[in-house]
């Protein structure tokens, strides 16, 4: 699966897709592969503040739990109810319909986030390490 060119990525394998003052956040294809079949997604309510680098939710497979760290700071303005009902969307379409939350941004997207090319290289290195 290719990584969308207009997204930015974290070293914890989250993506953020900025669109004006808001942005959608999810986890990457690499992350969903590592976790396996996702059975549960836990998201905070709308209105919850987000702090870049801090956990805001969890995704669970049968035998693993992973925290999801926010790539950006801001406030949650929408959560993906469809994903909560059908966690398997993360396995099927991690970069699209399986977005997790939509945030109103506090300022700019942090500069330290990777662009697609950097992230692809990061993933290639992670895979080689295994």
């Amino acid at each position: 699966m290719s990584y969308p060119s207009d997204y930015r990525y974290t070293t914890e394998h989250e993506w953020v897709a900025p669109k004006g003052k808001t942005a959608r956040i999810g986890i990457t294809d690499f992350a969903q592969h590592q976790l396996g079949d996702i059975v549960f997604v836990e998201l905070p309510p709308v209105g919850t503040p987000l702090v870049a680098g801090q956990a805001f939710g969890t995704v669970e497979s049968v035998k693993a739990v992973s925290e999801v760290f926010s790539p950006v700071s801001g406030k949650i303005v929408a959560i993906n109810e469809a994903l909560v009902k059908s966690p398997e969307l993360i396995n099927q379409d991690p970069h699209g319909t399986a977005w997790m939350v939509e945030a109103e941004l506090d300022g700019e997207v942090p500069a330290k986030l990777m662009d697609t090319k950097a992230y692809e290289q990061f993933v290639a290195e992670a895979e080689a390490a295994h």
């Binding site: 549960f40 049968v62 739990v65």
Partner: peptide, 12 residues
């Protein structure tokens, strides 16, 4: 639903 338990979630 074993992800609630200590052998997976450890300190959480």
């Amino acid at each position: 639903l074993a992800t609630r338990e200590q052998h997976i979630r450890r300190e959480k």
